[in-house]
Amino acid sequence: MHGPAVVTWLLAALTAASGLYCLTRLRPAATACGPAATGWWRGREADAAEAVMGLGMAAMALFPGTAWGWPYGLLGLALLLATAAPGAPAARAHRLHHAIGALAMTYMALAMPPGTAHHHTAPGLPLLTGSLLLYFGVYALWAATRLLTPAGPVTVALAAGPAAVPLARACRLAMGIGMFAMLLAM
């Protein structure tokens, strides 16, 4: 990422913390046994995608390069194909959002190779960059409104504590802001 070093480090810390939190949500409950223990992965796909995206954003902010384009391009295509799979509309929409995020990271990695000074060139396609900025800006605003609304009933499968849902929403907001900042710094 090009810009002030302190902004890069703060963005990396924010997205790494979000990714690590999502990673901790992947562990199975220690008290679960029987069918609950074997089906712990159900509903964790979003946590896995968010962990990969958060940790990848942190690494990409600190170590920019075109090499990041390949893994996130493949992840984006896999998630895009997964949106066609049958399932709940909310899960499909979440997969589509992560596909857009992974493909946006691919775009940033390929459009901004290391050593490119943003003062001399405007890397990438302005229309695509603007569209992604609009998408992630609106997503961050939407995530902020969801953070401010009550969480509602929390099911036992999702509850890691009373703050689990608001904290997960805060991580989504942080990653939306992180994507917006990375695109803005292009």
Rank of each mutant, 00 (worst) to 15 (best):
L75M: 08
T83V: 14
G56P: 00
G19R: 10
P123L: 00
A122E: 15
R92G: 00
L80Q: 06
A174Q: 08
T145S: 14
A102G: 02
G101I: 01
P89N: 07
G34L: 07
L81Q: 11
L132C: 00
H120P: 11
Y135T: 01
G124I: 03
A30V: 08
A174S: 07
M105F: 08
V138C: 04
A151C: 04
M179C: 01
A163I: 09
M175L: 05
A99V: 03
E45Y: 03
M1N: 12
A159S: 14
G176N: 01
S131W: 14
A85K: 12
T8K: 12
A102Q: 09
P150N: 09
A46D: 12
G87E: 10
P4S: 09
L134G: 05
A102N: 12
W70P: 05
T31H: 15
A30H: 03
G87T: 12
P86L: 03
P126I: 02
D47A: 14
M108H: 04
Y72H: 08
G19D: 10
L75G: 05
P166I: 08
A102F: 03
L81G: 15
A67N: 04
L55W: 07
L128M: 07
G178L: 04
F136A: 00
A109K: 03
A144S: 14
V138H: 00
P71A: 02
A164E: 10
C22D: 15
A5L: 15
A117L: 08
A59T: 06
F180M: 00
A170R: 07
L80W: 13
L183H: 02
L77F: 13
A30F: 06
E50L: 15
R27T: 14
G76R: 11
L11R: 09
A168G: 09
V6G: 07
S131A: 14
Y107N: 01
V7H: 12
G115D: 06
H94I: 12
I177M: 01
G56Y: 04
R146G: 15
L80E: 07
E45N: 05
A174L: 01
